[in-house]
């Protein structure tokens, strides 16, 4: 009988002398009780508020009224809310695309030609974790005055569009997307791929777009999903710049119609949750495609990124 992870950590009875069995069984039982208690108690702490939100969003007008989905049905009758949802979706798309455009070519270029800058780039990309969003807002205010000024001179109205928030959002998603893309690039042999393509006469755009990018679909999708989830949940920057994105509209709406705002909140939570579950499958798919040909490297233990540095060694 193969041992599960928990059994390995806390004693697996396979291949042991009989006297050890009772001790190990007792320990395994204790562990299972501990796991059940922790997961049930903390699970309740996390599930009850979400359940309460759902309960709140299905209430009738009075406490005794029957359950109704009228709050959910009326979500799309609030034009400000609909506009904010559309704006947030547009922002999510623009941010994800701009992030890819900015990061992927630079990361590949730095790996190939400017390896000395790699640590610098990593440091800068992780910097937004250290600078609270509210601090960034304080510093960005004067810069957004320029953005507004030059934006309007390029295209009337462009400078005051909510979509200018994407400039700040690209910065906010950097730490998360950099790590994902860096892991994706580390998993492929960028140097060999690009040298092979270059020696066959490919230009740099071809190398990046048609050779390297198709080799890291998991990391690209992963970073896009993270950006989308982050932008859809963003409140601080939009609120302080007086733009109505989804979260700002939710807060405004909660003062007028709490039921609808909580219905949208539940929907948003579920949507983001769905994205992240999808993301966990992307991670698995990537490691599966990464498996080397069986004969050549069969003797080397597998160490994959998503299954952890150690546990991959068990076959």
């Amino acid at each position: 009988m193969p041992c599960s992870r928990g059994e390995l950590q806390n004693g697996c009875s396979e291949g042991r002398p009989p006297w050890a069995h009772d001790v190990i069984r007792a320990r395994r039982l204790r562990l299972q009780i501990f796991r059940a208690v922790v997961l049930i108690l903390l699970g309740a702490f996390f599930l009850v508020p979400i359940g309460a939100m759902f309960e709140f969003s299905t209430r009738g007008n009075t406490m005794d009224a029957p359950r109704t989905l009228s709050y959910w049905a009326s979500i799309f009758t609030f034009p400000d809310l609909v506009q904010a949802i559309i704006a947030s979706l547009e922002l999510a798309t623009i941010t994800a695309l701009a992030m890819l455009l900015l990061l992927v070519p630079t990361m590949i270029w730095i790996r190939l030609r400017l390896p000395r800058l790699r640590r610098v780039m990593e440091f800068i990309c992780l910097l937004p974790l250290t600078i609270p969003a509210i601090v960034l807002v304080v510093g960005l205010l004067p810069i957004y005055l320029w953005v507004s000024f030059y934006g309007d001179s390029i295209y009337p109205g462009a400078g005051d569009s909510i979509l200018t928030l994407a400039f700040a959002y690209v910065i906010l998603v950097l730490p998360y997307t950099y790590r994902t893309l860096d892991a994706g690039l580390s998993a492929i042999d960028v140097k060999t791929l690009s040298e092979a393509a270059r020696s066959l006469g490919a230009g740099w755009p071809t190398v990046i777009l048609r050779v390297i990018v198709p080799n890291m679909p998991g990391a690209i999708l992963n970073s896009c999903l993270l950006s989308v989830a982050l932008v859809l949940g963003e409140y601080t920057v939009a609120n302080l710049f007086n733009f109505e994105n989804l979260q700002v509209a939710l807060v405004t709406l909660s003062r007028l119609n709490a039921g609808v705002s909580i219905a949208v909140a539940v929907a948003g939570l579920m949507f983001t949750f769905g994205l992240l579950v999808a993301l966990s499958f992307v991670g698995r798919a990537r490691t599966q495609t990464k498996l080397p040909p069986p004969k050549a490297i069969a003797a080397i233990p597998q160490v994959s990124a998503s299954s952890g540095p150690v546990w991959g060694q068990r076959t």
Partner: peptide, 23 residues
């Protein structure tokens, strides 16, 4: 649980406040 933790840890913000008001 990992996906749910990701949602709550990084993307909740406003929604978490709503959750407790509703609770």
């Amino acid at each position: 649980v990992s996906a749910a933790c990701g949602v709550l840890a990084q993307f909740g913000g406003v929604i978490l406040a709503f959750a407790f008001i509703a609770t």
